[in-house]
Nucleic acid binder design. Structure first.
Lengths: 329, 329
DNA sequence: CATCAGCATTGGATCGTTCAAGGCGGCGAG
DNA sequence: CTCGCCGCCTTGAACGATCCAATGCTGATG
């Protein structure tokens, strides 16, 4: 339709210079009230939108945030990222940022992608999900002073970089207390093999809570890979014990679902609580610990915009999950 | 570390002019073999990456594709978009494009977002998911000649714009044939209220297949909103019939899961097949019709790059889903 | 030997924005 | 009265790439 509307068009229309229009947008306080209003009127009248490419070329900032999207590994856990991503996009929008996606197989390729994105698109910041011990990605980014936030704690050095995370231990502690309050005494835990930050954290919440009430002995602790079949297997093993537990707390919904199915098949009276409150849990009526993903995403964006604006807020945030009760416990 | 690497840096390093470097990148055939090689060596040696902002300003193309991410409505169906998005990002990457996310509440706001994205970021193209009758979004984009592809047919006018879709009718037909081959004669369908393109399409596959074998009379057809509780209700109603069906085909996994649970609770021998092959279906062992989401995404990107390069391929693609068999049928 | 075609290469202009520097009127201080 | 300063605005230059027109070079031809 109409010709391209640039800052010059607006300037002509408002009878001022280009720079004044630019100032209205970027430093309104140095422009006189009525001039500012006149420029704003011209902007809306013409439907002007600042060209990001041109702005970016001059300032080196793109107002773009990169987020990795992973292949849905499990299928069950995929929805977690999905919800997080949605929250991220929405909050970023509100702050004038946009979310750019990328994929990568393996850390090395991911780092190459950083390089690419930074070089070609001048990305402002990165959001990483799923951190692990000795993560090479955060090291690379930190070394180059690229602003980034992780959703997930750096498990080695808590102060290494800004992060947002959900307090897994608090979640399992809450679940454990709920089971205790319901009269359970033998409460087992089915978790991942020790060594993963997330898994160990969640296990710790259960363990300390059980220890607090002196029930540590009546608390079988199992380690297994993630999966429904694995959950079934562990539940069967637990039920075959001399003094089987009356409740099981699982580190994931996959394991919890398996355990729940195994208990039902064996007609055993076993309370089960999972973790992540995935759609699967909701669908089959499984109680689960729910992460505040929307809030986590919002905090990530807040931290990033803070970083980019040079503000210094406390760059580490631990959020509390909540327990969602359904039929299974 | 090193200073910013621009096209001039590369030119100096390779002992040629800026334009020659540009030609190597954009029109390699007009540059002499050995010159080209020398330039390429300089590029890799310096780690040069073309600045997209500068390129975009001159050419007006951003190599960016926008995709909407929706709030996970159901929770169960969210994973479909998730997998599609992953495929999209991966294929786009391979073609040198990047995926930009956006959210919007309602069509009006979404159209405003188009305007914004086009004005500010010079987006090259859009991918829309979930089309409906009389979609105002596609009309808006078409009117402005913005390149776009929809994942989902335009249900009013098949030739309106390029699209990729999965043949829902073929999927339900395949599922119906499977049930027939397994000896079922009374096969019910639980679908959404007539009027939604997707739902009607899926219903049609079942109906025509049943009609082909003259079993149309023995085929109860139910209409209901989506949801697990709704699926349970419909299954109970079906089982209470004088001549209850021995199998149920559902338009979604949510409904199928509900039906499957109701049948189990009633200890009824009822085969159930769902649609979308969501993680929930996989988790509980529900047979389902699976959409080739990765391929659909790849085709979307192919179509778009074709459009952008001015190629004229057939811009309409109907893909075949496949039946995934588990315990439930 | 002069001319010209064919091709690779060069310099300058350009996209839309922001930064740096400067102009200009008015006001208070010396 | 003059000077300096402040607030507000304008002008020229720059970011890094591509496009366009012009130039240099080589070799073949009249």
């Amino acid at each position: 339709m109409g010709e391209k509307v640039t800052i010059a068009t607006v300037a002509r229309h408002a009878q001022v210079s280009r720079q004044t229009v630019s100032n209205v947008l970027n430093a309104p306080h140095i422009v006189r009230e009525d001039t500012r209003r006149r420029v704003h009127e011209a902007i809306t009248a013409l439907g002007y939108r600042a060209n990001q490419a041109a702005r970016q070329m001059r300032t080196g900032r793109s107002r773009l945030i990169a987020v990795r999207i992973e292949p849905t590994r499990d299928g069950i856990n995929g929805s977690v990222l999905d919800r997080f991503l949605h929250g991220l996009t929405e909050t970023a929008d509100a702050s004038g940022y946009r979310v750019l996606l990328y994929t990568a197989r393996g850390d090395e390729q991911e780092i190459a992608t950083y390089d690419d994105l930074l070089g070609a698109y001048d990305l402002d910041a990165f959001v990483l999900t799923g951190t692990k011990h000795g993560d090479p990605r955060t090291a690379w980014l930190a070394e180059r002073q690229v602003p980034f936030v992780t959703f997930g704690r750096p498990w080695d050095t808590p102060e290494a970089h800004p992060w947002v995370d959900v307090d897994g231990a608090a979640g399992t502690a809450q679940a454990t207390r709920h089971l205790l309050a319901a009269g359970h005494r033998r409460i087992a835990f089915v978790g991942w093999p020790a060594g993963s930050g997330v898994g160990d954290d969640r296990r710790a919440g259960w363990r300390t809570t059980m220890a607090e009430v002196g029930l540590h002995d009546a608390a079988p602790d199992r380690e297994t890979e993630d999966g429904i079949a694995e959950g079934q297997r562990e539940a069967r093993a637990l039920l075959a014990l001399d003094a089987p537990p009356t409740a099981v707390l699982c580190v994931s919904d996959s394991l919890a679902l398996g355990a729940w199915q195994a208990a039902r098949d064996a007609a055993a009276d076993l309370a089960v609580i999972g973790f992540d409150d995935t759609p699967v849990a909701a669908a089959v009526g499984l109680s689960s610990v729910s992460q505040p993903l929307g809030e986590a995403a919002a905090r990530c964006v807040e931290l990033l915009t803070g970083l980019l604006d040079g503000q210094r807020r406390d760059p580490r945030l631990l959020l509390n999950p909540s327990l969602v009760l359904r039929h299974s416990a």
